[in-house]
Simulated assay, not measured.
Amino acid sequence: MSTLVDIFIPDLGADKDVDLIEIMVEVGETVEVEDGLITLETEKASMDVPTTHAGVIKEILVKVGDKVNSGDLIARVEVEEEGATEEKVEETPAAPAQEQKTEEVAATPAADSSEPMGLEAAEAELKAISAAGAEISCQFVNEQTICSVVEEVHVPDLGADKDVDLIDVMVSVGDTVEFEDGLITLETEKASMDVPAPFAGEIIELSVEAGMKVNSGDLIAKMVKTVVMESKVPTPAKKEEPVKKEEPKKTTTVQEVAAVSAPEATSVLTEKAKKIYASPSVRKVAREFGVDLGFVKGTGRKGRILKDDIKAYVKEQLSKPAVAAAGTGTGLGFNFPELKEIDFSQFGEIETVELSRIQKISGPSLHRNWVSMPHVTQFDESDITEMESFR
């Protein structure tokens, strides 16, 4: 089955009646999540509005030249419901499936356990892991075989690139990471990329450091993952197990929260950062929005810039013109009186020509600079008698 989903203009801050300068899709076109639909232009920047759902464009309710605002309806997308998800999951190999359900089974052995794994399948699993050269230690607890496996994580295939710069190590020994969490960041001549964790586990050894040159297949780290294999269906009666008690959360006052959150109220850095840590996908979004990543404040691990940081930066930048307009003017100390309208038709026939958008934007800035800059002409006198005699 398929459903129609409405796509709306996102929050534009204080901007109103924003110009729609381009429609990037057509009716009947198939789009993916984050694909651009339309392009909006404000006084300070242009931005693409991406789709929030993947599907087929069924109706476009705007056109080029329209003035739009936050919450306006853009288009309707036909989204197909996923029906073959379970079949695809069943076709995956047994080993990855066991790796992904490790923590879930360990946390709730009675309620959320999948189909039990027989002894023969468990032995085959252990043999496969042992053949790969991994260190294994197993124990039998509550009708379950729990094995701790130490595996190595290597640099993936980098193609033709050699001696690639390692610019950032995102984890340290003792950290617990999830599947697809970033471990290190590599930078080639064309792009930077994060190397993700191939499975969830704990970092027990790091073999690299920032500033190194690495190649395909180099050892990054050693990680411990837990594999739970059931030899018998656990009974609900044995549900009581020692559970780690969470430490009581420290109560914080409103003043403490305000003190912590106050410095992070802005998404804009006052000075341009010397080093920028962002993934290629984030850099692509920044290029689409025309954002200089040097001034974006990152909220990810170790100050990494995320897509949400760019959106927050753009939203804050778009709200600045309205704030400036509500002030005293240019902020240069000149409070000029408003000019009275003059009826130029009294001097003869006139023609009114609308300014282009760039003229409307640049005109006030040019006037402000002309008024604020010092107009100075300097004259110096010099005696050139000897020079004239020499000539």
Rank of each mutant, 00 (worst) to 15 (best):
A273S: 15
E338R: 15
T270R: 08
E41F: 03
L306C: 05
E381S: 09
S365H: 14
L40W: 03
K222V: 03
E32M: 13
V153M: 05
I21M: 10
P263L: 02
E104Q: 15
A121M: 12
V177S: 01
A111Q: 14
S345H: 07
T52Q: 06
D19E: 10
A54L: 08
V227R: 04
L73I: 02
K222M: 02
R357M: 06
S261W: 10
A273T: 02
P196R: 04
T30M: 11
G290N: 02
L20W: 10
T252R: 12
K222S: 01
I184Q: 02
L219D: 06
V177R: 03
V171I: 02
F379R: 14
A312H: 11
T226Q: 01
A122M: 14
A131K: 12
A326W: 12
E316W: 00
M47Q: 14
M170W: 05
T3A: 07
L186K: 06
A134M: 12
S130V: 10
K249I: 13
T176W: 06
V173E: 14
T108G: 05
A325C: 03
I342T: 04
L20A: 14
T226C: 00
H154F: 13
T92S: 06
P50Y: 13
A200S: 06
G174H: 03
E351F: 05
D66T: 02
N142F: 11
T92V: 15
S231M: 01
A210S: 05
A110P: 02
F179K: 02
A325G: 13
R391P: 06
S382I: 12
K232N: 04
E104W: 08
V214D: 00
D308F: 12
V291M: 04
A121R: 14
L158C: 09
S372V: 13
A258W: 04
M223A: 09
E91M: 11
A160V: 10
W370P: 11
V228P: 04
S46G: 12
A110L: 00
E187P: 00
V31C: 14
G174K: 07
H53F: 08
A75G: 08
T39Y: 08
V77H: 06
R76C: 09
Q100W: 10
P248Y: 09
G28R: 09
D35V: 08
V285F: 01
E91G: 00
I384V: 04
Q359P: 05
I38R: 07
T108M: 03
E264H: 13
E246Y: 09
P236A: 13
T330G: 14
V376P: 06
D15M: 13
E246S: 08
M193V: 14
I57D: 08
I74W: 01
L4E: 12
K360A: 07
I9D: 04
K63H: 01
P374W: 02
E43M: 13
D72L: 04
G83K: 07
A273N: 02
S362P: 04
S231H: 13
